[in-house]
Design a binder for these strands. Sequence first.
DNA 1: CAGGGCTTACTAATCAGTAGGTAATTGTCT
DNA 2: AGACAATTACCTACTGATTAGTAAGCCCTG
Lengths: 194, 194
Amino acid sequence: MDPHATETDRASTATRILDAAQAQIQRRGYNAVSYGDLADALDLTTAAVHYHFSSKADLGKALVARYRQANADARAAIQEEEETLRGQLERYVEGYVGILESGGLCLCGVLAADDETLPAPVRREVRGFFADQEDWLAEIIADADDAELAGHDAPREVAELLLATIEGAMLTTRHRGPDAYRTLLRRFIDTVAS
Amino acid sequence: MDPHATETDRASTATRILDAAQAQIQRRGYNAVSYGDLADALDLTTAAVHYHFSSKADLGKALVARYRQANADARAAIQEEEETLRGQLERYVEGYVGILESGGLCLCGVLAADDETLPAPVRREVRGFFADQEDWLAEIIADADDAELAGHDAPREVAELLLATIEGAMLTTRHRGPDAYRTLLRRFIDTVAS
DNA sequence: CAGGGCTTACTAATCAGTAGGTAATTGTCT
DNA sequence: AGACAATTACCTACTGATTAGTAAGCCCTG
């Protein structure tokens, strides 16, 4: 492989670095992933990684920002394509299964555990991610037909509870496979939407 | 302070090392805590820490084993002193508040996030901790008066859901203080026990 | 011939872990 | 009770590996 072959073939190096960083951090945590690990995985040098992301804070911030945006896009698609609250919640919850299948956790769940060691810009993005989820969930719960709601009142609290349940279920079921996660969240949704 | 003064004054050095390790890991994660950090915190050398815990795997295993035992003792006290399911669940949930107040997460929640980087004996202890909690919760839920139960069926699933909710709520509310955690878990308990 | 996208080669700091020594305490024998 | 060896609980001083980050140069494309 000529290292100078028309790069940007398929995915740009910057994107591939973010992909590798995301996969590794979701499985191993922020502090266990080094520039060397990423360089090895992509057959590059650490200097090449530094060329695209000059510091680990930079890389982390870009990574969470991308994750946050991808999540926002997914939520928009759900809201457009699903008509019932139950359908929206089920697709939202199912969106995390792919991560579990590859052995990882929600990127921001992992980063929240490493919170005190994160550079400030990364920490801000992580909190923004959680706020995004809670805002959106509270909105779709508040907007749902009354007939569809079991636990009607306080959509914000239900939203927070769902988010906590998702993050926690990933953590406690990660070694038992995605079905354990699915079972838990189905039960949760049953208590919220008819 | 003479380093050779009749040590074992108050707490043994080994215990103080475990205390420091637990506090730091709960706040910063397993891989962000080094022998140097612990030595600094206790005014020792890294060699002294190695004297008590010859490897990081050793330290981690001892730490989780102690945490697990302390938790078992707390559960036994709850079961002895509280008569209603609701009382038991409330005290169990409240048991994690102290951790949040000192800025940390459940030790095993943090370690589960770092799962892939843990030495095998540590990973085993962490899974054992989760199994302990689920077994006990399932038992007290199954044993409760039928009159007291709202979501009566499948105590095991309710137990898993509660554990996931606790771990997840700590993760998502850690920057908002213990009251956010309390609010979420009160709501959860309301759906389980009358 | 001017970048862009990499390379090799380096740095200073930090990591877990080790070797060998030392001062105080404890246990044993007389 | 007093001598003395063993043990405990540390220390200084080190190792080789790994960390994030830097400096300077090289090759291909436009």
